[in-house]
Amino acid sequence: MQRLSRSIRAALGALLLAGQVHAAAEIQYRATNLNLEEAKKRLVKGTPEEALEELKIAEGLPGNTNRHRAEIFALRASALLAQPASPERKQGADEALVALFHTDPEGAALAAATAAAQERAKALKAERPLLLHERQVTVRSGRPVLLRARLSGAQPGSARLFAHYRVEPDAADQSGSDEDYVQIPLEPTRSGAFEGYLRPGIGGIPAGGEHVVRYFLEARSPEGTLLDANGSAREPIRAQLSATRAEGVPDTALALDEGGRAQNPVLPPPPTPWYRRWAVVGPIGGAVVVGAVVAVILLQPKPQPVVGTLGRIDLP
C-alpha cells in the first residue's frame, strides 16, 4: 500500500512538468513536494529506511526549488546517520551534506536535520573546502548577472574560481554539447568572496527575452587541482533569465500531485462551422422536410374510377 502510494505520488509528479515544461525558456517550480513531507514524517517516526525511499522519489520529481533540494539533502544525511554506522553510510551522509551546502550555503535547511546530521555538517564545513554560492533562480534579462561565491576553509589567494555557463537552446529536449560551456574567471574581492558578471549580448548571453542559463562553478588550486565544484556540466544550476518574472524569487505553482492544474489545459473544441449551426441547418432542414412532405402529397397517384366495358371518356 505504501509502495503504491509512493508510486502514485511519483507518477503524478512526473506529469507535472511533462505538461508544463514545453519550452526550454521557462522553468516551473512546484509549491510543495509531498514525498519530501512524507519523508519528514517517516524520519520522525523512526523509520529512516522508508524515509530514504521517499527522498529518492522526492529528488526525482521535477520542479524542485533549491529549498526542496536542500531539505532533501539534510534529511538524507539525517536518515543515513540514523542507521547503524558504516563507511558507506558515512560517505553518503557527507556527500548529502556537501550537496546541501552547495544548494543552501547558509545551511538553513539543517533545521530540518537531526542533531547528528547538524553536528556532522559543522565538522565537514571546517575540514574541507566548500564552494559556497547563493544559486541564481530568476534574474532580469537584459542586465548583467552577478555570480558571487566564496570558498570556505581555504586561505586567500590559494584558489581560483571559475564559472562555466551556457544558454539552453530553445528546444524541448534542451540538447546541446557540454563543450559549449563558456568559462570565465571569478575575480576575488576585498571581502574574500569572488565575483563575476554574465553580461547581456556578450559571450553568448542573450540581450533580452526569456531564456534559461545553465552554469556551474569550480574552485581550483593554483596548480589546477579541483578543490570543489558547485554544480557540474552534467548537473548544472539552472537560472531563469526573464524580462517579466520577479527577480530572485522562484514562481511556484501547485503541481498536479498537489491538486494543481496543468499549465496547458485541454484546448477548447473549435467553433462549429456556420454550415453546421442549428440556426442554419434548422431552417434548411425544415424546408427540405416540408418540401418533401408536400411533394409526397402532390405527387401521390389519385384513385381512379372503375372503367366501363367500352372504356373511359374524359369530359372537357
Binding site: P305, T309, L315
Partner: peptide, 30 residues
C-alpha cells in the same frame, strides 16, 4: 360537350358500360 360512338360486335353484347370522368371543367349536371 362530348359525342362518341362504339361499334357493337358479338364480343360486346348488351349491357355495356362507359365511364365518363370529369377531368376538365366542372359540370354540375349533364
Amino acid at each position: 360537350i362530348k359525342g362518341v360512338s362504339f361499334p357493337l360486335t358479338a364480343q360486346t353484347p348488351l349491357p355495356v358500360s362507359v365511364t365518363f370522368v370529369q377531368s376538365g371543367a366542372s359540370h354540375a349536371r349533364v
